[in-house]
């Protein structure tokens, strides 16, 4: 039976779709059967991030409204035979889907997969409610900025109120040089403020831009630090005990020097 995991955020543009694509791929690379669902109805994106936009025939709303069977709508990944995408409808609005629809859909899929990842739209409205409806677990993505963390705090409250259990946190776009200079909130500070368990930190990394341009995901790129961070997140999600500080270990000597420097100064 699949674990249904929704990836959400309060503020938009913090990296939910990037996380869903990379985490889904990394889990499938480990041999799991994975489906990723784009629940951002009207703003379809996960397909282009995964480079599958040319293969779409049917979408989530077609399945919900009975025009297509699930099998027909699921798109197989280019590389991984056990990774599938259920795309969002681009021409419909989010009123086309209800939370009950999402619960029915994920229940229908559960027996065929090990993981079902749901890419949520930003915000606290209908689209968010739909995206978490079928979830057993929620991952909240934030960047280390005041506005994003504030909005993440709102989402923590809503997820808890929806009785989804304590959500876990992914901090995306950390710039370790800025953190070391004391000019960016650190992972520890964000975790302390939000008081939820972290599952990973992802560096701000140009390889994300490059791989997204090509419609490939960073986890396939051996040289991508962000890709490695997503692989570590997949390991933690799968239950492995991977220390969170793996990210800082990869910093250059200079960064580490300034890191010591900055800490002493405080």
């Amino acid at each position: 039976m699949a674990r249904v995991i929704t990836i959400t955020s309060g503020k938009g543009g913090v990296g939910k779709t990037t996380t869903t694509a990379n985490l889904g791929t990394a889990l499938a690379m480990r041999g799991a059967r994975v489906a990723v669902i784009d629940a951002d109805i009207g703003l379809r994106n996960l397909d282009v991030v995964m480079g599958l936009e040319n293969r779409i025939v049917y979408d989530l709303v077609d399945v919900i409204e009975g025009r297509a069977r699930l099998r027909q709508a699921l798109i197989k990944d280019k590389r991984l035979p056990e990774l599938f995408l259920l795309p969002a409808a681009q021409t419909r609005d989010k009123e086309a889907v209800t939370p009950e629809d999402m619960i029915a859909l994920t229940n229908q899929m559960r027996s065929d997969f090990d993981y079902i990842l749901v890419d949520s739209p930003a915000g606290i409205e209908g689209g968010f409610r739909n995206a978490i409806a079928g979830a057993n677990e929620v991952l909240i993505v934030t960047t280390p900025e005041v506005s994003a963390v504030r909005d993440a705090d709102r989402i923590v409250g809503l997820v808890e109120a929806a009785e989804k259990g304590p959500p876990r946190l992914i901090i995306n776009r950390i710039n370790s040089r800025l953190v070391n200079r004391g000019e960016m909130l650190s992972m520890e500070e964000v975790v302390e403020i939000l008081a939820i368990e972290p599952v990973g930190v992802v560096p701000d990394d140009e390889t994300i831009v490059i791989s997204t341009n090509r419609g490939e995901v960073a986890v396939f790129d051996q040289n991508s630090q962000a890709g490695r961070a997503f692989i570590n997140i997949a390991r933690r999600v799968a239950g492995e005990d991977v220390p969170l500080m793996a990210l800082t270990d990869q910093q250059g000597v200079l960064d580490r020097f300034f890191g010591l420097f900055g800490r002493k100064a405080r």
């Binding site: 005041v146 004391g182 000019e183 909130l185 500070e189 403020i193 002493k264």
Partner: peptide
């Protein structure tokens, strides 16, 4: 260390400012 800090860095580090603002706003 704090001497240099005071000399070159009169302003509080922005991460510290961000943290304080966040705590208040939350």
């Amino acid at each position: 260390m704090s001497f240099f800090n005071n000399l070159f860095n009169k302003r509080e580090r922005s991460a510290q400012v961000a943290k304080e603002r966040l705590l208040t706003v939350l």
